[in-house]
Write a protein that binds this DNA or RNA. Structure first.
Lengths: 228, 228
DNA sequence: GCGGCACCTTGATATGCATCAAGCTTGCAA
DNA sequence: TTGCAAGCTTGATGCATATCAAGGTGCCGC
């Protein structure tokens, strides 16, 4: 398969696989499957038994939960190059803790847990990479919980916009919203209407300009100060 | 030191140390320090450089963050036998991601990160235990985020009370609130007044009875259904 | 025993955000 | 071209929860 060499190249650049030697990588290839998926396609349900975790090659995926009343909270948006559900590897009875659904069609790599655990056993560097990654995720969760409990919707939106600004850039920056506004609202745990209203308020205050999915931030530092 | 044998016994029962052999445990003892702390004593500040993580022997500790307006969110309450801040081990520039403060005086074991990392390098079982633990923490965070965004204060309080019921018990159960009500409220991200009012409402509805820190749950299953 | 403090409770009021409802735009299909 | 559905915006209303304020209780030090 020609597919293999492409896959190999991609894996090399991912933290989970970077520390593997050629032999390990080859061995792993036998336990990896690539498959396409469509926008709207359900990849797995919360509670489904899990035998694999994933690496997104292209497209976009949302991880989310649903409340009893049918309200949806987007827990995480996955973009190409990101892996997700690694944590099922370490569960006694592995089940996906969220729903996963494609929002833009693309291609997904699934890695069998057992196979990867075998690799982990022989590579402390990879173990360490996994632990470091989990630490980052835990950090992100602390931050999100703080954001949800200690900050209002205006703060959350501003924080989100500033989070989209590429590292190191400041001053006037154009940012592109990565998906439709309704999903971003769900991620920030606000109603779509509220998200819309906050953007409007920021526009009226002369801080930003919104043109569909393009947000023109007039000045990152000024915006940062306009959290009330 | 006699202290040592006590410590050794305690470590054996903790997931982080259970898989270690005698030699490793002995080696680690040289990099472990026990120290007392008082109620109200600040153990570390968010952002402090970190060289160690902790295991609580006795007393109680709260991990929390403070908003710009001085509002406090309790991220986690630590009870004897629990470890915390393990994740600083895997950071590039280790800093505590939260404040830590004693709420009841007690005794704290600090374990030097470097020393424990050396152990991890030679024990995959311990690696795996750490990863499993981090997975559980991540799970708990998903759950908490869901709770905060998808559920109202009444649900959160009921969920919290039911979480205090010992495993397997059902029907009429007495639960003991682990700390003062104000802190529990902060953990649930509600105002102390709201927490008080929810308990009152549940009492008025004939579901529970509250006597200081003792909550008499008349029927766990009935309470579970009374989430509105 | 008394004063003061910490914590909790209760009531009144304020407010941020969700919800409901309607209109607008865009894209796509018939 | 028309029609319809999806997504976004905007306005009106309602509700849950925070905030403010006051009083109650128990504890500790003096």
């Amino acid at each position: 398969m020609d597919n293999r060499s492409v896959l190999t190249r991609e894996l090399r650049h991912h933290y989970l696989f970077a520390a593997l030697d050629a032999k390990q990588r080859t061995r792993l290839l036998g336990h990896i499957h690539t498959r396409p998926f469509a926008a709207g396609e359900l990849l797995f349900n919360q509670g489904d038994a899990a035998r694999a975790f994933f690496l997104l090659q292209s497209g976009a995926v949302k991880l989310y939960r649903i409340s009893a009343e049918g309200q949806e909270k987007v827990m995480r948006l996955i973009r190409p190059g990101q892996s997700f559900a690694e944590s099922v590897m370490f569960m006694n009875e592995p089940r996906y803790p969220v729903h996963g659904q494609g929002i833009e069609g693309g291609s997904l790599v699934s890695i069998e847990c057992e196979a990867f655990l075998a690799i982990l056993r022989e590579s402390f560097d990879t173990c360490r990479a996994v632990m470091a990654q989990m630490t980052r995720r835990i950090q992100a969760h602390w931050d999100e919980i703080e954001l949800l409990t200690l900050q209002n919707s205006r703060y959350r939106v501003i924080h989100y916009l500033l989070g989209l600004v590429p590292d190191g850039q400041r001053g006037r920056v154009n940012v592109i919203l990565p998906t439709r506004k309704g999903l971003i609202a769900a991620q920030l745990a606000v109603a779509p209407e509220t998200f819309s209203r906050v953007l409007r308020a920021l526009t009226d205050e002369g801080l930003i300009e919104v043109q569909d999915e393009v947000v023109d931030v007039y000045d990152t530092e000024v915006l940062r100060l306009h959290i009330r």
